[in-house]
Every structure is written in structure tokens, then in C-alpha cells.
């Protein structure tokens, strides 16, 4: 068996608005348009990944499966059901049907446990998969023909601090990379974080009314650009250094650790990442960013 590889590492945010605006048959509400820059960014990402082959598995780290008792992994091979976004139920009521690579999930779980992290396999077949996972996976692979591994966002930052949270996530990322290498599989890693995360507190009556969409404020935008510029320059270590501050200043979803997990799994890339798109969704900053380790 040849060694497994990370085909791509992706910052893959999960605003349900993007799925809503795409009108896939699985989603109940209907949209006329909306958030094209980000949706077309996902299209560019899909083409870029496809040009290097079809991955065997998507590994997603999702902030909307929040756990306090360590890192949990989906451990049942098939889930189907209805996912309703508790914040935007008007936009996202999605009928999902997905396969899980339980063998790889267990392998990552075991590596993480061996590294001293608290871990748990989720083996309840009635479990409802979180909408962040579903949204990110759908936007990266709308065919739903590749199994996923899904890792919860453990809230170490909440119990300790942003710094401790990041350190745990980096260790989890490194465990993920070891398990992928041993698996012989080609994986795409999805860190499902938005960037700056201050939301508007009202919603236009027509959600896809783009005349109402803009970044929340200039300060958040500047922070996002600073972070993206470091990604574009391949300066991952600097990102890790400023991440606790960045997270605090922009109330970023990076608090939940998906980005630090990804940078750990990619072993702190020194090669430039490709930013496929940046745009706002109800004021929050979202970027679709791809790291291609073969460039490394």
C-alpha cells in the first residue's frame, strides 16, 4: 500500500446562504440568486481539486458540532435525515444522505488519543449530522459520492483559552496527517471556519437582496486581509502567532479551531495558498482558500 496523502487543505466556510442560493434539490427553500462571488469561488475550488484527481475521502472539522468533552468523530457508516439550521431555518432545510469512512475516523481518533487528546467515537445511528459539516461538504463535493470523516469542534478555548484551544487543534491536525499517511488514501481536508464573524442582527426580508450585503465594518475587513495576505505568502507560523489576537478582535469562528487544525495537519505550509474567493455573508467575512501540498 502506498502512503496516503493530503490532496488539498481547504478553508471551507459554511454559510447556509451559499447552499440556499445554489438551489440544490436537497434543500427546501428557494432562492433567486445571491453571494455569487463566494459560490463561484467554490466552483473554482472544485475545478482545482478535480484537476488533481478524485479524493478518496473528505475530512471536515466543523464548528457546529460543538463538544466540551474532547474531540468526537462520526462513527457510523451511513447517515440520512433532515438538517434544519437553527439560526437560519428560513434558508436551510436540507435532506442529507452521506457515507462515513469509519475506518479512517477510527484511525484519526486512535492517533489523537495516543497523542494525549480526549476523544470519543460517535456511534449513535440516530445522531443528526450538523449543518456546518453538511454545508461545507456539499459546497466542495455536491455529488455526495465520496465518504467523509467528521470531527467535532472541541471547546478547549472555552474551558481554558484561545491559545490552549489552538495548541490542541494543532496536535489534532498532526494526528490527522499521520492517520491519513498510514491509510494509503488521498484526502481533502476541510477546515470549515468563517473569518471575521460579527453578524448583522437583522436580516433583509429577501435574504438574497445583495444591496443589503457588505462587510460588517472596516476593522474586521482589515484583519481578514491581514490573515489572507499571510496565507498568500505561505506564512503559516505567523498566522498561528496572531490567531488568538485575530480571533479576539474579529470574534472569529477560528476560535472553534478548524483553521489551526488544518495548519497543523499541513505541517505549517511555507508555500502560498490560493484564495479562490472572499466575500461577506450577513456581514461576516468568508474566504475559500486552498493549500496544495504538491506545491510544497
Amino acid at each position: 500500500m502506498s502512503a496516503g496523502a493530503i490532496l488539498a487543505g481547504v478553508l471551507a466556510p459554511h454559510p447556509p446562504h451559499l447552499v440556499y442560493a445554489d438551489n440544490p434539490p436537497q434543500n427546501e427553500p428557494y432562492a433567486e440568486c445571491g453571494w455569487e462571488e463566494l459560490r463561484w469561488g467554490y466552483e473554482r475550488l472544485r475545478k482545482s481539486i478535480a484537476s488533481r484527481g478524485v479524493p478518496d475521502v473528505l475530512i471536515v472539522h466543523s464548528p457546529h458540532w460543538r463538544t466540551n468533552s474532547g474531540h468526537h468523530f462520526l462513527g457510523v457508516d451511513h447517515f440520512a435525515g433532515l438538517s434544519v439550521d437553527p439560526v437560519f431555518p428560513n434558508l436551510f432545510r436540507f435532506h442529507y444522505d452521506l457515507e462515513v469512512d469509519v475506518e479512517l475516523a477510527q484511525a484519526i481518533h486512535d492517533e489523537a488519543a495516543a497523542a494525549g487528546l480526549q476523544t470519543k467515537m460517535m456511534t449513535n445511528p440516530s445522531f443528526r449530522v450538523d449543518y456546518g459539516t453538511i454545508t461545507a461538504c456539499h459546497l466542495v463535493r455536491p455529488e455526495w459520492d465520496i465518504p467523509i470523516v467528521c470531527i467535532s469542534a472541541s471547546r478547549a478555548y472555552y474551558l481554558f483559552s484561545n491559545e490552549v484551544g489552538d495548541a490542541q487543534m494543532i496536535a489534532l491536525g498532526q494526528a490527522t496527517a499521520r492517520a491519513v499517511a498510514d491509510s494509503g488514501k488521498n484526502a481533502v481536508l476541510l477546515a470549515s471556519n468563517s473569518l471575521s464573524h460579527r453578524h448583522f442582527t437583522v436580516e433583509p426580508s429577501l435574504p438574497e437582496d445583495m444591496s443589503k450585503e457588505h462587510v460588517y465594518h472596516h476593522g474586521q475587513y482589515l484583519w481578514d486581509m491581514r490573515l489572507l495576505e499571510l496565507m498568500r505568502q505561505g506564512k503559516s507560523r505567523e498566522i498561528v502567532d496572531i490567531l488568538p489576537d485575530y480571533t479576539e478582535q474579529t470574534v472569529s469562528e477560528t476560535k472553534e479551531g478548524s483553521l489551526s487544525w488544518l495548519l497543523g495537519a499541513l505541517d505549517f505550509p511555507t508555500y502560498p495558498a490560493e484564495v479562490h474567493a472572499y466575500g461577506s455573508v450577513i456581514g461576516t467575512g468568508n474566504a475559500i482558500v486552498e493549500w496544495n501540498p504538491q506545491h510544497g
Binding site: R66, H72, P86, V87, K120, N124, S126, F127, T201, E203
Partner: peptide
């Protein structure tokens, strides 16, 4: 346990029906 972002949401479905599993304590059952 029900956080909202866009203002305040109020449940108005007359007969909600589901099999609930907790995100954290899934091993305790449905």
C-alpha cells in the same frame, strides 16, 4: 441551549416531532 443571532426566535410549530440525540452525550441514547 437555543442560541440565536438574528433577534429572538419563538417556536410556533404546533406539534414538533423528532427523535433527538444530544450532540455531546449521544452515547446516552435517543
Amino acid at each position: 441551549g437555543w442560541p440565536s443571532v438574528i433577534g429572538h426566535q419563538i417556536q410556533a410549530l404546533e406539534r414538533p416531532e423528532w427523535v433527538h440525540v444530544d450532540q455531546e452525550w449521544h452515547e446516552l441514547g435517543e
